[in-house]
């Protein structure tokens, strides 16, 4: 009963998100539905943190800084770090899914694409605003369902920092630009 209710709710959400169905997992949700839902949570939390914490306190009110070296500077964690620490915490708990925040124009070079599909997905979402990218790839002997979602500049804190940083490869970001992508993977084997 519970499983059925979950599937119905998932179907409703799936419809709300306008997701096209991808090959179904037996008796469960589509991979793309799962990644869409995961991304919905991630992007919502990320936007809330960026707008209501960092942008409000660091940019608009100017009462505290946000810094990559937040411990040393007694500052707010950067939105990208907040996201990455969450992803690393998940990685410590489970192999059932993984996610990361990547970009074709990363300040930290670790966040550049490392697989062909990551690059393809990031290029696709940059060229097709508003669309997601879905695919399958083999990594380390396992097949993964890989979804790439656009990460859009939602607050001044995003583009101001990325445009000014000494290590940035791109300095013309503005509101609404796709600055990178959230990559979510689920092992299919």
């Amino acid at each position: 009963m519970k499983a059925k209710a979950t599937k119905i709710k998932a179907a409703i959400l799936c419809g709300m998100l306008g997701t096209a169905a991808v090959p179904a997992v037996s008796d469960g949700m589509d991979y793309s539905t799962v990644t869409d839902l995961l991304h919905l949570v991630m992007s919502s939390d990320r936007t809330v943190y960026t707008r209501m914490i960092v942008n409000r306190l660091a940019v608009e009110e100017g009462v505290i800084k946000a810094s990559e070296h937040y411990m040393d500077e007694k500052a707010l964690v950067l939105p990208a770090q907040m996201f990455r620490y969450g992803a690393e915490m998940v990685a410590e708990e489970t192999d059932e899914f993984s996610y990361s925040l990547l970009s074709l124009w990363p300040i930290n070079k670790q966040n550049a694409p490392t697989t062909d599909m990551e690059r393809e997905g990031l290029e696709y979402i940059a060229a097709n605003p508003g669309e997601n990218f879905y695919g399958e790839e083999d990594l380390g002997g396992t097949t993964y369902f890989t979804a790439v979602y656009p990460d859009v500049a939602v607050a001044e804190a995003c583009w101001a920092c990325h445009n000014d940083h000494k290590d940035t490869p791109r300095s013309d970001f503005k509101a609404g630009d796709v600055m990178g992508g959230v990559v979510i993977r689920i092992p299919m084997d």
Partner: peptide, 19 residues
């Protein structure tokens, strides 16, 4: 130590090529 190369950073399958 605020580990620069923590294990959790490498568990993501995107690091498979580095494994």
């Amino acid at each position: 130590s605020d580990d620069s190369h923590p294990i959790k950073k490498f568990k993501n399958p995107r690091m498979a090529a580095y494994w």
